[in-house]
Design a protein around this nucleic acid. Structure first.
Lengths: 224, 224
DNA sequence: TTCATAGTTCGACTGCCACCGAAGCATCGA
DNA sequence: TCGATGCTTCGGTGGCAGTCGAACTATGAA
């Protein structure tokens, strides 16, 4: 029995479904209605799409009262979407015009569970030029120096040892075409930012908006 | 402008096209007719599919006499297909019944440019248990010991320095669900095998068949 | 030149699948 | 209990994309 990728491709290959999946790249759990708005279709149609996506285990549902919250199933799925986003960004004629959120999306956005966009790339560059992370060929490593730096910021290396997820990972950015920080450390940075309320996610997109104070604090914290 | 992954998904999302792409994972350049056979469609239909795939830059063409040879465009594409193969292998109901090549496919096959299947996994395990490669979290590194070992076999580390491609990489196997050796080194191992004529690619698939002598030589060379 | 083979273009057909309106459950708040 | 909201099921519609037969262009071989 050989795997059949056509089915998987077709799942992503519908405009409405692809919009939903992309919306879920925010990492947030969204309701059926929200997703139907995101995809510009009626709730009925959305319902059937969502059923397919759940059946095929690309997303999961959690029922909460009369709402249903949908989420990408796991990192595997997010990685696939991310890869496809990247590839189609470099394909000339495959982009679609969208609204005013675009600028904010370019500036800073959430890539499943870490920071992407210009700001994400900027962070990556600084970490690198300070010798805190080192990129060699395809792999990214946290240096001793970098470990010291992040420890002072409150990052606890011990918690990561349990996880099989890589500590550092370079994730290619579709808008910038350059690397930003992913992996466990990338996740930590983003959750730290949100926890401190330096930024909040824009309601209807993956864009994330820094407060003016938050941006200053962020920049100073990471020496940008 | 936000990238639209639906178009990309739809390209893979057709059964005929997905079969062609999967066939091209052998790394071989195949003609239009061969691909049409692979996909069980008439040459006319194949032609229109191939045009789409070329237009969207998933594959490339080389014209040679009255033949047209098609190939995956680059490693990016191969990685996408590989990722999708893996994901759909773990999705219960997405596999399709195929012919007798299946067993051979499971045993050993080509994954774009390196060795996969049982034999590939076996090689990986041995390299690991001998301390020649080390897998930590998501990254794979060749140890000093391993470098020595491979150098003796005729592997020239110097040539890899120029390439931006990672030296070692763990590639997940859809049939075995375990890692096998990819990256530059993986490519080298396969090309070495083929060069020594220890094995030859089966004509109509990604399966690769070892001669009995070749298999012995291979196993002894890598201490399997 | 002539025939065979590789690939393409055109037009017609067909079937699937996304889509929505209408109606039906389920849950919550009052 | 009643209305409002969130989501689903059903049935019917429409359009697009994959399919092939037939006819065409290129290349090579005899």
């Amino acid at each position: 029995m050989e795997p059949n990728i056509a089915y998987l491709g077709a799942l992503v290959g519908d405009v409405a479904r692809s919009k939903m999946l992309t919306a879920l790249m925010s990492g947030k759990a969204l309701t059926a209605t929200e997703l139907s708005l995101e995809a510009n279709i009626t709730p009925q149609t959305a319902s059937s799409h969502l059923m397919k996506l759940v059946d095929s285990e690309l997303i999961t549902v959690r029922k909460q009262g009369r709402h249903k919250y949908f989420q990408l199933k796991d990192i595997q799925v997010a990685e696939l979407i991310e890869k496809m986003l990247n590839m189609s960004a470099s394909m000339a004629h495959t982009s679609i015009a969208t609204g005013p959120t675009d600028e904010r999306l370019k500036r800073s956005r959430i890539c499943y569970d870490h920071l992407a966009g210009e700001l994400g790339v900027q962070l990556f560059d600084t970490l690198q030029s300070n010798g805190w992370i080192v990129e060699a060929q395809d792999t990214l490593t946290l240096t001793q120096l970098g470990l010291g730096f992040f420890s002072e910021l409150g990052f606890d290396i011990a918690t990561t040892k349990k996880s099989r997820r890589p500590l550092c990972k370079a994730c290619l950015d579709w808008s910038e075409r350059r690397s930003h920080l992913a992996g466990y450390l990338g996740k930590w940075v983003l959750s730290d930012v949100l926890e401190r309320k330096w930024a909040h996610q824009h309601l209807d997109s993956r864009a994330i908006e820094f407060t003016s104070h938050g941006l200053k604090a962020f920049k100073s914290k990471y020496h940008l």
